[in-house]
Amino acid sequence: MPSVSAVPPSTPSSRDSVVAALRTAGCVFAEDEAELILATARTPAEAAAMVERRVAGLPLELVVGWAEFRGLRIAVAPGVFVPRRRTEFLVEQALEQAPERAPGARVVVDLCCGSGAVGAALAAALGPVELHAADIDPAAVRCARGNIAAVGGQVHRGDLFAALPLALRGRVDILAANVPYVPSDEIGLLPQEARDHEPLVALDGGTDGLDVLRRVAAEAPRWLAPGGCVLVETSRHQASTAVATLERHGLATRLAVSEELYAHVVIGIRP
């Protein structure tokens, strides 16, 4: 499994047959996908096997074994949530909000970490940090350990805050929680790649999509340092309820929106 690294530039390669196969299978960005497959495969046989898996419907990131996230190559594996480009906006907001600390003194937590992309990106941007990531899904934990270890972090398995070391209480400067927020009855409306290849626990947020967010909001104030922030991705129609939820737990709350990425991030700051 590849580790976190800068994404290298692609090298020119003959790709007509790969592009043709991908186009026939209905891949909209066949040229770009062909370039990634050919740049990743170590042998022609491996490239052919990758094309076969992609044509069969496996997400491209799982075919090549990695996803690009804020310029990093994040390893992904079957059964693990693939990081989305819109979640880069959450990282940007966290970096803007990060309280001033001495080098190495910041404490960062990536909750519901999946592959660990958010934590890895924060550590790469901030420099030395005390980084912890957690997820309830064993497949996600295995995958995240490779990505997080590459930036000096630790990964814990368990249900939200129960997975974290108690010594972190009251010390967390950045708590990034990319919680599941799709309402249960809307799971069937997701793209087939998500429905068929990503774990339900990483997608299903309960009746209104906010069940996990409510649990994070209730516990976050006890874990944040003074001036620390919690950031949670949500959807446009859930945003006002999500803001009110964090406010009810004593956090100074605001909503950040990126129209370009169609991203909505609720930010709560401990006074």
Rank of each mutant, 00 (worst) to 15 (best):
N178T: 10
L210T: 09
V55A: 09
A140T: 10
A177E: 00
V230F: 06
L131C: 08
R54P: 00
I174F: 01
G104I: 04
R195A: 02
V7Y: 05
L210M: 14
V151S: 00
A77K: 11
P99D: 07
A20L: 09
A202S: 14
L203K: 10
N178E: 13
A144W: 10
L168D: 11
V51D: 01
R169N: 11
R85K: 12
D110P: 03
P165A: 07
P2W: 12
G104N: 02
A162M: 03
S115N: 03
R254Q: 14
P44R: 01
R15M: 13
G209F: 09
G206Y: 09
I74L: 11
P226Y: 12
G227D: 11
A94T: 04
V107F: 01
V141E: 11
D135R: 10
D208H: 07
Q192T: 15
E219L: 11
D208F: 07
V118I: 15
A176F: 13
V151F: 02
P165T: 05
V182K: 12
E35W: 09
V63Q: 02
A252Q: 13
E92S: 14
E61W: 10
A41W: 04
P8N: 09
T40G: 10
E61H: 15
F161P: 04
A56D: 12
E219I: 00
R195I: 12
V64E: 00
R254Y: 13
C112E: 05
G26F: 13
V4Y: 01
V80H: 04
A47V: 07
W223D: 09
C229R: 13
V266C: 04
L203G: 07
L200N: 05
G205C: 08
D196N: 14
A125F: 03
A20F: 12
R222K: 15
D196R: 15
L36Q: 15
V230K: 11
E259S: 14
A252D: 15
A140D: 03
L224R: 12
V129K: 05
I187Y: 10
V7F: 10
L224N: 08
T87P: 05
F29L: 14
L22V: 00
P9A: 14
V107M: 07
M1H: 14
G146R: 15
G114D: 03
L58S: 11
L190D: 08
L160W: 10
F69I: 00
A217Q: 07
L122K: 06
H237K: 12
V109E: 00
L95E: 08
E68R: 12
L62V: 00
G26Q: 13
V172N: 02
A162F: 01
G26W: 14
L160T: 03
D32N: 14
L231F: 10
C229L: 09
A49T: 13
V179D: 02
L62A: 05
P83F: 02
R53I: 04
E33Q: 10
P165D: 07
G158Q: 03
I269F: 01
A48W: 03
P191K: 12
L38R: 09
L22M: 09
P99W: 08
A105P: 00
L251A: 05
E31L: 10
Q238P: 04
P2L: 13
S240A: 15
S14Y: 07
L126Q: 06
